[in-house]
Write a protein that binds this DNA or RNA. Structure first.
Lengths: 209, 209, 209, 209
DNA sequence: GATGAATGAGGCTTCATTCAT
DNA sequence: CATGAATGAAGCCTCATTCAT
């Protein structure tokens, strides 16, 4: 039991160090100093700095994955929207409550090396898959207009990611509830005034403008 | 003249190396080998590896910035949309034509260190500023419904960025024209069928659902 | 009783590990894994990895020493030869039956550090002393021709050692009885045909060729 | 040119360090301190401590190999003996003139790791091959009595090696000329007084004692 | 200007040994 | 007695940068 605590403690310390200095600038010395353990202890629990970061990333992805629920179409269009909202809210809440993890996801886990890239790629793959599926579902329910679901899924993920990224690099944005609402509305109703949309030919569902 | 060519040659070589191996994995040796110059020569043209990367990033940001035109409201709602489309198209074209730069932007320029973050932050700042301004303009023209322009600007940027990111990490997405259309339509008209939007109360422009 | 068994068990395990991986490449972890004891237990029985190896070497040298009997001159020239043969045979048998120890002797005990060298030096010293003494005895019995007993003793030891060394590094050599016979005959009668030796002036016992 | 000198200088310094402290105990710091070069310079010339030692060993083996000449049977039995003497003399001279190399060969190059063992094995292989061939030649010339040439070749090499080994670990032995004579005579005429050999049945060339 | 040999700070990792339980 | 988690000294190697030619 003590071991698991120790391990968790080192992991936490490393998380903070990585978030502050970045993966490359962070040294094992930084981590063990912060954790207050000996050098050897570090390697007792983690095979390498890289392996520890791997672990951190896996944990983060698992948390994120768990906070996103698959859409249940059973409750109609309004229900689907509510579920989408809940998902966005959960992701934002998770990441905003843990800025260190946010920085890891948004900065450190990017372009580290092919091995990491693969892991990140696969994570976004799962996320895109979930999103795409929801869009296809929406199409079947005649709720979503004809779109290229692959591309639009990317746009949706991108909106959430960018909000988080901007927060990660320090930009001040509104409170979480506003963020969720704006992201969602931007996605579902778009930017135009209904009246204008109609006038510009955006009132039909087909692609022939 | 000769000097400027040499400098450009080293810069190009470095771009490829950084894009292939990433900033940290790329060594000065890699760069001078690719460029075919001596080690000392490298430092004759660039103060440090870091300074060279700075230069590369500045160039990239300038290119990107130049490919985005400020929206001219004089040509009405349809004109504004066309200009937005042109901007998205220009950015995609620029980056798709230069995968090395795309990789730099999407991977290497992220989370390098606080100094770089500032540069990147400022770039996105200018971009967000432009986008926000367009949105405010749209509001004034009564074309855009009431939104939090700061947040929505982030969403728009995020959509474009994510499309580019997914391409950078190797995902196959449709041709550029499809991408532009989908991004734009996702943004301006949203996902919902007009009929559904109306039913769900998304037909009014105000926020009181 | 139990303690002595445990100690012996660790010693055996270490012997195998050292023979397989070599002294330096062998870690205490390797040894305790093979022995199935805890790390602390190791240090309960042996002061250090080095001390254990010392022990192993002492045991080996004692075994070897015991397998070499002092020559009894009482039984004439033929008896002396038979005793020499028995000694060589005993050493070969001992080492061939225990390849792990052979490897230790031939590889690991060599050039470890000045402290070990002393131990090894002293072992060979005793061996050379025994051999030299036999040669001196042979001279007194007028059986051995005039030789530099110190040097020739080294040659004799060298022949046996090299045969063992070649076996240790994996060379296929004939069965033990052939080895003993060849080593012995090489030593006592030399290489030349008696007729040739006579012709070349090797028939006299003195040094004036 | 300067580079080759630098390289040779580091090599020499390393040779001394290895001879004094042994391969494992010797650190790269020891070597660069002795050579008076920076750490990086070491790695400019040698990929690793191991690679440098490899080089040292290769050089040594080449020197040794060059100092051993293939026996020319054209000059009769006496000529063959003279050539054998010359070979032994050359090897002893080479090694005695360079105690550092002697220690490397006798101590450090033994049992280092499988890679090194192979190199050493192959060196002795070539040496044994040369020696065996000479023995076969001697048999054909009816100069050498019937022996197992493989085993006897090992004995011959062993005699020379052991003399060198004993010197390497610090034993005082006679001057080189005495060593050569004793080794040679031990090999060619054996230990017995001709008279005794005859009496014991060692006067015939066949194996039926 | 151009070259490339030389530098050395600093990083990661191993592993023999200790000691509280 | 036995355990195994913890320790930290010490080693190897990399690579951005400098500078004499």
């Amino acid at each position: 039991m003590k071991k698991e605590q120790r391990r968790a403690h080192i992991l936490e310390s490393a998380l903070e160090v990585f978030a502050t200095k970045g993966y490359h600038a962070a040294t094992v010395s930084d981590i063990i100093n912060k954790a207050g353990v000996a050098r050897g202890t570090f390697y007792l629990y983690f095979g390498s700095k890289r392996a520890l970061f791997d672990q951190l990333l896996d944990d983060l992805f698992e948390l994120l994955h768990n906070s996103v629920k698959r859409i249940d179409p059973g409750r109609g269009a309004a229900g689907v929207l509510a579920q989408m909202e809940a998902n966005i809210d959960a992701v934002l809440q998770l990441m905003l409550d843990n800025r260190a993890m946010l920085r890891i996801l948004m900065s450190e886990a990017v372009g580290l090396d092919p091995g990491f890239d693969k892991k990140v790629y696969e994570f976004y793959d799962r996320l895109l898959e979930l999103t795409s599926r929801s869009l296809v579902l929406g199409r079947q329910m005649k709720v979503v207009r004809p779109v290229d679901t692959r591309v639009v899924a990317v746009c949706i993920i991108g909106s959430v990611k960018e909000v988080l990224y901007q927060i990660a690099i320090g930009r001040k944005l509104p409170r979480r509830d506003v963020l969720v609402r704006e992201i969602l509305e931007y996605g579902v109703r778009g930017l135009l005034e209904p009246e204008v949309a109609r006038r510009l030919g955006y009132h039909r569902s087909d692609r022939t403008k």
